[in-house]
Design a protein around this nucleic acid. Structure first.
Lengths: 283, 283
DNA sequence: TAAAAATTGAAATATTATTTCATTTCATAC
DNA sequence: GTATGAAATGAAATAATATTTCAATTTTTA
């Protein structure tokens, strides 16, 4: 209890505090990020009070020392970690590029997670579990996502078929029994090829899952189940499928682990087995 | 950058540190949660060294004071503790799965960024710029990374050849002129196929780039340039190439934008052009 | 193998946190 | 109102901690 939510605790007793301590408390709540680089006496001065009172406030909220207060506040402040989206400019220092890309990736993934709906995800898990073969299709960068899915589920003993050639995939699907799962991946949800193939898959009696961006689009309209990630913001350079891939990949991760968590024991064994096989082959 | 990922930074320079500083670094990495309640001299004693050396280590990783170190580590510890690297358990609530996966992905990417060395990255950019064709090979999950590279550079007008069949790739390479770039992708850096093909590429006069995990391995020993990401921690379920893919993808992003930033105008035009072409085709 | 550079911890110093204490403010009882 | 004790306050004293200095030692370089 002494460990968590210092800012909340300060806030809740703020109004019961004596004048000088209250001023300090308000300063802390107002600019918590600054506290961590201040000394007790600086904070005392800045909040029109004194170092001694700063220490008293620490004791009042049951924190052993001012340094401890800084440490604990530091934790809470970082949790609110707004990064935001930004694009790359000419001749930018590598440091900046890395920071921006990290920021973009974080933001994209975080936004994607916040947009994920539990219901369709669980439906997708059930459908995939019930299907003996999973058919996959994606074009361009989305083909990487389709292959990622194929790799992951193959490892846990599910047969996956992912062709880059839509004709070949259709041929394979048409010869299979009804009710198998088809997953179509498209960032925009408007790619001609994939809409077409999803239509045909449905005619053929397959259960269709769309993996695409958030919102309504031609693909989600056709799909039985829609798994959606955040609409990746695209800048001038960024159009090379950077953010969208991160969004799609984290969505696949979540789908996979949701699937794995439901059949834990079986899957652990299968992963172990497939790893052994690969090691045996590679050595 | 001075603000982020202190633990990663400490870890990455750990092996270059003098004896006493290294002992302190190891203590910090081993028990980061404890540091925040220790004084400089306590840490000095606990790690069989001295307070003075603790201060020196702070300066070495470019942190202004020991208190600042505590504050920054405190952030990371909480960031790391509930999320950090963790595995999935049976029948876990979706919320928890998402939190863990987000945490894993963040941590992996952040660690990767902190481990990236500017020199080889810039060398790789130059080599790729100079090469008229880029040859790529990766097997298993790493094939996704190879294809990701192929997609991205194709978009900016660079010819990329990525076969999944090593024989086909060798055949293609052997008929090309000397000095072309070959990029081999392998998470472990020990995959038989890729080591072999890199050897042959080198014999054939190609410039070789390895994209693999941090540290020495068979692949880095053979490559002219090594681009390294963090060694992804693998749990029971996590072995399905989840963290490693995030690490590899952010590394490719950084390579790409470093490349793009160096030829900004030209590349902007090409991206615009290739996007127009795709749109024209798709509609 | 000698000279130079880097590393080290003990001790000296500087900074910062905390306590003490005299003074002031505030609430309560008359 | 005002006397009284309790609480609150900040300046100054003190204690704790961080940082620098320096002489000794190790490591690297030529």
């Amino acid at each position: 209890m002494t460990e968590k939510n210092i800012l909340g605790r300060i806030n809740s007793i703020k109004d019961q505090l004596p004048r000088a301590e209250k001023k300090i408390a308000e300063f802390i709540l107002d600019k918590p990020e600054e506290i961590v680089n201040m000394t007790a006496s600086k904070l005392g001065t800045a909040s029109e009070s004194s170092a001694a009172t700063v220490i008293r406030l620490c004791k009042r909220v049951d924190i052993s020392s001012f340094t401890q207060l800084k440490v604990l506040i530091s934790r809470e402040v970082t949790h609110t970690n707004p990064v935001g989206y930004s694009d790359i400019t000419p001749d930018e220092p590598l440091e900046d590029i890395m920071d921006k890309l990290l920021g973009n990736a974080f933001q994209t993934m975080q936004d994607t997670v916040s947009v994920i709906q539990e219901q369709p995800l669980l439906e997708a898990v059930e459908a995939m579990k019930a299907s003996s073969i999973i058919y996959l299709f994606g074009i361009g960068a989305s083909s990487l996502v389709a292959e990622n899915i194929a790799h992951k589920w193959s490892r846990i003993g599910k047969t996956c078929i992912s062709f880059k050639d839509p004709h070949a995939l259709l041929a394979a699907m048409s010869s299979t029994k009804k009710g198998q799962v088809f997953i179509g991946v498209s960032n925009s949800g408007e790619t001609k090829e994939i809409i077409k193939i999803m239509e045909l898959a449905k005619e053929n009696g397959s259960q269709t899952i769309a993996l695409t961006q958030f919102g309504k689009n031609s693909l989600t309209k056709k799909a039985d189940i829609s798994l959606q990630h955040v609409r990746a913001q695209e800048g001038a350079v960024r159009s090379a499928a950077t953010s969208s891939l991160h969004a799609q990949f984290i969505l696949v991760d979540i789908l996979f682990y949701a699937y794995a968590s439901k059949n834990y024991d079986k899957i652990i064994d299968q992963i172990r087995y497939s790893r052994e096989q690969i090691e045996k082959y590679s050595s």
